[in-house]
Structure formats: C-alpha cells, structure tokens
Amino acid sequence: MIQTQIQTSPLHSDFAVQVHVAIQDIVDDPAAIAELKAIWQKSPVMIFRRQALDEAELVRFTEHFGKCETSGRKDIQSPYHDQIIYFSTLKYSDGRFVGGFAGGEDVDWHSDQTFQVRPATGAILYGTEVPRDGGDIYWADQYGAWERLPQDIQQLIEGRNGTCRYAKRYALLNTLELQDKARANAMLSLPDATHPLVLRHPHTGRKALYADPTTLIGIEGLSEEESARVLPILFAAGGHPSLAYRHKVHNGDLMMWDNGCTMHRRDPMKLDQPRLMKRTTFRLAATDYCTPHA
C-alpha cells in the first residue's frame, strides 16, 4: 500500500486545484482516497492531469466517492461499462456517433440533473481524445455566488425552494442531444422538481447558491413578478466572472467536481476535430456533501 501525502496546486483560490497524483497508483489505497475526500471538502473542483486509466479503473475510482449511476440511454453508454457515458465527435462505421452530445455550440452555465427530483451531484469527466481548438470548460464557485448576493436577497431566498423544469433546458439544448422524439417527449413530460435555493455543507457549514439558469423557473412563495425580479440576480451571481475557473483540457485530464456547490459550462468547439470524453455520474451522500436532498 502506498503511503502518500497528496500535493495540490491552486488553480482558482482554493475552489479549484490540480492534484499531483497518478490515480492508477492510488485507486486501491484507502488512505490516499481519504486524503482526496478531505481535499474535495475544501476544493470542489479537482483536476488530475496526464492520467492513463482503463474504464474499470475509472469506475472503481468513482465508486470510492459515491454510487455510479447508469444511463437509460444505451446510445451514449460505453459498450464495456454501463456506468460510463461518452461525449464524442467520433463515428462508428455506420455513421452513428460514438456517444452523444457531439454538437459544437457552447453550453450555458448549469448544474447537472437539477430537473430531477433527486439529482446525483458527483461528476467525473475524463478526456481521452481532446480537440485542439475550443471546448474549454469553466466551473463557477457557488459558495462565492452566495457570498456575492446582497443581504436582502440572501434573506429572501434562504429557506425557500426553487422550481426546476426540464422544458427550459430543452429549449436551450443542442439539437443533437435529443434527436429521438420519443425520448424528448418522455423528458418533457417529467414533473417539475423543487430544490432548496441555498445548500449547506454538513461538515464545513458553508452555504452555496443552487440556482441553475437552464432549469430554474420560479421561487416558491414569491409571485411571478417577484421571481422575475430575483432570478436574474441569482443567475448573475452564479456565473460572475470573478468566480470562474477556465480549464484548457488536454489529453489525459480527469476533471472531478461537486454539482452541489459549483456550476459549469463549455466553450464552442469544432466538430471536425476528434473528441472522446468519458463521463461518470455518482450519487453523493447528504451526510457528507452539499446536496439538495436528504
């Protein structure tokens, strides 16, 4: 067993850090995983550069932090491990994309799965083939977003739920994401989800804004007019440039983040350049992480 004190370098204050370790070396080391969990408490975006992981190692590493979800979409799932989905510009010989979400347009600030009643908030994205131009990924610190809000807005929203609707995100989506009409209609028929607008980390006590601009349509207990006044203030705080870390992705980068206290977005990219990203999504425990559910 490896005995190590893992070193990190700040990328954006203490919110995003580069972790100087080869995951292959520590994936079966409980002490090292415990160190990473402690780092993640403080720095919800962790970047591991120049990794060389097979898919079994990626799944094994992920499940140290939470139970992996499996996608209901077989068209974007890895043929080897159903806990992994692919984002890719590559195609099979029959013309189908290898994976999904291949469009080159930019992606707005968002948190994953906010339209679901019980979102899974842990995420890992592993770049095995990365385009040369474009496609930079950004994360925004939602602890900082909460602190940026005027005090009267903090007092107004704390303890209130927001209403999230998939149809809002669908209207913003790249058209390649849901070409299957039956799948699109199923997603559009999902009931609205309600989540607290302010999440509190159970260990650190820090408060994070949880206001996804791509799904949040209203604030419970406020009139439509008052919600319409407050929502732009929340969205502006959540995506404020001072809170954002921009990451130029290179082959072998593994990026890990906590959706309970971050948002993320992506720059446009060129579809004529090869890209293959492998993604795991995992459910974090409310006893240890900043989550919108008990």
Rank of each mutant, 00 (worst) to 15 (best):
D141K: 04
S88P: 02
G122Q: 02
I217M: 08
H240G: 03
Q5I: 15
L243A: 06
R246T: 08
T204I: 04
L271Q: 14
A237Y: 10
R169N: 15
R160K: 12
I157Y: 01
Q77I: 06
D133C: 08
F235S: 01
A193E: 04
A228M: 09
P213S: 00
V98Q: 04
K42C: 02
L125A: 11
Y126A: 04
F48H: 05
Q155H: 00
A244C: 15
W40F: 13
P196H: 05
M269T: 11
P10C: 06
T175A: 11
K207I: 05
D253M: 05
L173C: 10
F282R: 11
E69Y: 15
P119E: 02
T215Q: 07
F115Q: 06
S111H: 05
T214C: 07
N161H: 11
T70I: 14
L11V: 12
T291W: 06
A32K: 02
K207T: 09
I157H: 05
F282P: 10
P79F: 03
P10Q: 04
V19K: 04
M256Y: 14
V45G: 06
M269E: 00
L284H: 12
D152R: 13
V45T: 09
F87M: 12
D253R: 00
V117I: 13
M277K: 04
H110R: 05
G252P: 02
H203Y: 09
G159E: 11
L90W: 00
L176A: 10
A294E: 13
C164E: 05
Y143P: 14
I217V: 15
E158G: 01
D192V: 15
R265N: 11
I39T: 12
I233H: 12
Y80K: 06
C261S: 15
Y289W: 12
H195Q: 07
A171S: 13
L90D: 03
P79I: 01
P274F: 10
G104P: 07
E35C: 06
M263T: 15
D141I: 10
Q7G: 02
I233F: 14
K207A: 04
V27W: 00
D192W: 08
A31E: 06
N161T: 14
I47F: 10
P30L: 00
I124T: 14
R275A: 01
E177W: 00
L125N: 06
